[in-house]
Amino acid sequence: MKNLLRYHIKVYFKSNKLLLPFLIYLIYLCTAYSIMPYSIVSSFSESAWVLFFVMTYVGFSYTEMENPVTEQLVLLKVNNDNLYYMSRITVLLIVGVIMSVMGMLYPVIFNVINHSQLFTRSLMLSDIIFGLFLHCTMGFLGIMTGSLFHPRIIKNRKIAILMVFLVAVLAVAKGSLIKELPLVRLVSWVFPPVYDILVTFTNRDFFGLQMMVMPILGGIIYGTVLMLAQIHFLKKNKF
């Protein structure tokens, strides 16, 4: 596993595909936190759904850079499909955690620089911990959503791009769509529960363990289902 992780990390970072999403998220953070004071819960929630979009792009672009011939050779050498696919996903999860930490570290440092004037109330350790969990969950959902549209799962890449874009948008906007078209509620569960998680924090001033457990657990379960589905389809759809 360790050698596979080194291999994937080396290939990924050499491709420079991480540079664009990193810059996009950094620019967002610089822009968003230039406004003071900001509500802690709403700012962290907004940052988390932006991270969802960024990590959806990361997951999708990662599958685009894979070379089928190289992948076959590595799979033959490893002789363990599950281990190979899990190592790929682990690399993406590492990237997701790094981006999540960045999403939390920036406002924390900026708040210190501005003498604790960035937010409408004092920033507490619990805010940072819960905020990090929220970001990691959204990053996980984004990774699994984007990487599900693998070239071996959806061969037409134009359709894949359109589908991943629609799924990502509907994951966040399905609440508004349900208000306009109530019947959409019957199929809304198909899309990642980004809206379902974020709506929990609407008009909240504080994070709380009790209110976070179910939304975060739901997000982790959904992402895990996508991960298992991806591995299943990749093993089924050979080269």
Rank of each mutant, 00 (worst) to 15 (best):
I98L: 14
V164L: 13
D127C: 05
D81G: 07
S100G: 10
L181W: 13
M163G: 10
F140M: 10
T90E: 01
D196V: 08
V50Q: 04
F119K: 05
F52G: 01
Y57E: 02
H135L: 15
R88K: 14
L105C: 12
I113H: 12
S176H: 00
S87I: 01
G103Q: 14
F130R: 01
L166M: 12
Q72E: 15
L51V: 02
I128Q: 10
P193M: 07
T56D: 09
Y195I: 08
I89W: 09
F149P: 00
V187Q: 03
M124L: 15
A168N: 01
V172W: 08
L181T: 08
T56Q: 10
V169R: 02
L170T: 09
T56M: 12
S87N: 05
H115F: 13
A173Q: 08
V58T: 04
V91R: 00
N67C: 11
N111M: 04
I128E: 12
A168R: 03
G96C: 08
P68C: 02
V78R: 05
V172A: 09
L134P: 09
H150M: 03
V187G: 00
L118V: 11
T56F: 10
P193A: 06
P182W: 14
W189E: 08
M86F: 11
L73Q: 13
V194F: 09
V91Y: 00
Y85F: 15
